[in-house]
């Protein structure tokens, strides 16, 4: 008797997080890369404080987007190595649960990265927050955004993992799909940072929730066709 969908999901999340912990050097490199990207953007903008504040949200999301491509590609490299994913699917684990587990683990990794990058962004771009509630609202936007990146990212990383030019293929497939997500995430982040007297952020957050629903559902339905020939 094989495990239920939920038990499979939990086992895959635990496994992926354990591998991330074991390969902490990779995680450190990812953090370093993202911080370096934020620094580069701040250098490119020059010393204009107001411009930096205005664009802080955009640069935060660019840093997260570039880091996510590296993280997602790495998440499927460990599956392809030794054909470990095949052995998992032969148990026979439900491929949909494997998808949910991997996408959730990727989202948690990106969320951790986001939680590290937000304070960096605040310092580098001289953005002030009005207390812990303001910070929590910003983290909520980051959470919705990284979940919306992880869902299609995990599916496309699985598609591109066996391709010869997988490192090129993943961003080529992923970036166009993420344009509306990024737009909503950047707008929501900017509104949360600058203050939102008209309550416009809610519209963008609703859009992010909608993207999450669509992308997670699509991944759940399509992943078995991707991993089963």
């Amino acid at each position: 008797m094989n495990a239920t969908l939920f038990a499979t999901l939990v086992a895959i999340v635990k496994k992926d997080l354990l591998i991330e912990w074991r390969t902490r050097a990779r995680l450190s490199a990812l953090v370093f890369f993202s911080v370096a990207a934020l620094l580069m953007f701040s250098f490119a903008l020059g010393a204009d404080i107001q411009t930096m504040r205005d664009h802080a949200g955009g640069y935060l999301w660019l840093g997260l987007l570039f880091a996510s491509v590296l993280a997602l590609s790495e998440a499927f490299r460990v599956e392809a190595e030794n054909r470990a994913l095949e052995a998992v699917l032969l148990t026979p684990a439900d491929a949909r649960a494997v998808y949910l587990g991997k996408a959730l683990a990727n989202a948690l990794l990106l969320l951790l990265l986001g939680a590290l990058l937000v304070p960096m962004m605040l310092v580098l771009y001289d953005v002030g927050l009005d207390g812990p509630l303001h910070a929590l609202r910003l983290l909520a936007v980051v959470a919705l955004g990284v979940f919306a990146i992880s869902a299609p990212g995990t599916l496309l990383a699985a598609i591109s993992t066996n391709a010869k030019s997988k490192d090129l293929l993943l961003p080529v497939l992923l970036f166009p799909l993420l344009v509306p997500v990024l737009l909503a995430a950047v707008k929501a982040t900017a509104l949360v940072i600058a203050g939102d007297p008209m309550g416009d952020a809610f519209t963008w957050l609703s859009l992010l929730v909608a993207f999450n629903v669509v992308y997670w559902a699509l991944g759940f339905l399509l992943f078995p066709s991707v991993v089963d020939e």
């Binding site: 008797m1 086992a11 054909r83 148990t91």
Partner: peptide
């Protein structure tokens, strides 16, 4: 081999035990 190289032998088997229930 079908194993995750970054996990130990016991961890690999524990993963499969969990998946097999």
């Amino acid at each position: 081999s079908g194993h995750y190289d970054d996990l130990s032998a016991a961890e690999n088997l524990r993963l499969h035990a969990a998946l097999l229930g």
